[in-house]
């Protein structure tokens, strides 16, 4: 890559990894093939420190103010927010459906936990997504090894703690293989808290 490496500035606090913010917007009736998905997703920028994160985040629209069907993605630099990416292809995600009004707070708590390495699962975390829909919002956190039950259980436990979710919130774990197969990210095994 010809792009200049992003590094922490002087007196800034480095993060464990560099992260990239992405934005995507889905058009109604548009096919959701991975090709069109890749065309619809735009990089916002990459940061390497806590301070650089805040400079991006403070200027970004909050999920509650997004219109239509849009998503923010925050992924480790070098990992595309697609199940087909080499880092994610054997992985999966915890999916949490939220009633309207909760997404902004939950998204902030989720990404702060991720950036601060609160999940304690080594290099397993790929990134997180908030998807704004008309009737509900969905947040998800992706990890690399769907078959690693100790890791997925630990992520679930930390999610419950950092998100402070209402009782009866539905959490589902779904492998990317299944998401790609049925072309819908948000179905399958349901776990009610």
């Amino acid at each position: 890559s010809k792009r200049k490496a992003v590094v922490p500035g002087l007196a800034e606090h480095p993060l464990q990894y560099n992260y990239t913010f992405w934005y995507s917007r889905r058009t109604l009736g548009c096919p959701t093939s991975s090709q069109s998905y890749e065309q619809n997703i735009k990089q916002i920028g990459t940061f390497a420190s806590v301070e650089q994160f805040w400079r991006f985040y403070s200027h970004m629209v909050r999920p509650r103010d997004l219109t239509g069907h849009s998503d923010f993605h925050l992924f480790t630099e070098g990992i595309k927010p697609m199940g087909e990416d080499d880092a994610s292809k054997n992985g999966g995600k915890w999916i949490i459906r939220l009633r309207k009004g909760l997404a902004s707070r939950c998204w902030e708590n989720l990404i702060l936990a991720m950036l601060g390495e609160q999940f304690m699962v080594g290099e397993e975390i790929c990134g997180a997504v908030v998807s704004v829909h008309f009737q509900e919002d969905i947040i998800s956190i992706w990890n690399k090894t769907a078959s690693d039950q100790a890791t997925t259980a630990r992520i679930w436990d930390m999610l419950r703690r950092v998100l402070n979710l209402p009782p009866n919130t539905i959490m589902e774990y779904k492998t990317h293989t299944d998401s790609i197969k049925d072309n819908s990210s948000f179905r399958n095994t349901k776990i009610t808290l």
């Binding site: 500035g9 007196a11 606090h13 806590v50 301070e51 403070s58 708590n109 601060g116 390495e117």
Partner: peptide, 21 residues
């Protein structure tokens, strides 16, 4: 290896630090 861990409060405090602004 060592991992760089920050809690929520620390990250929130950095938001208001002069270095961020």
């Amino acid at each position: 290896g060592t991992r760089i861990i920050y809690d929520r409060k620390f990250l929130m405090d950095c938001r208001n630090s002069p270095v961020t602004k």
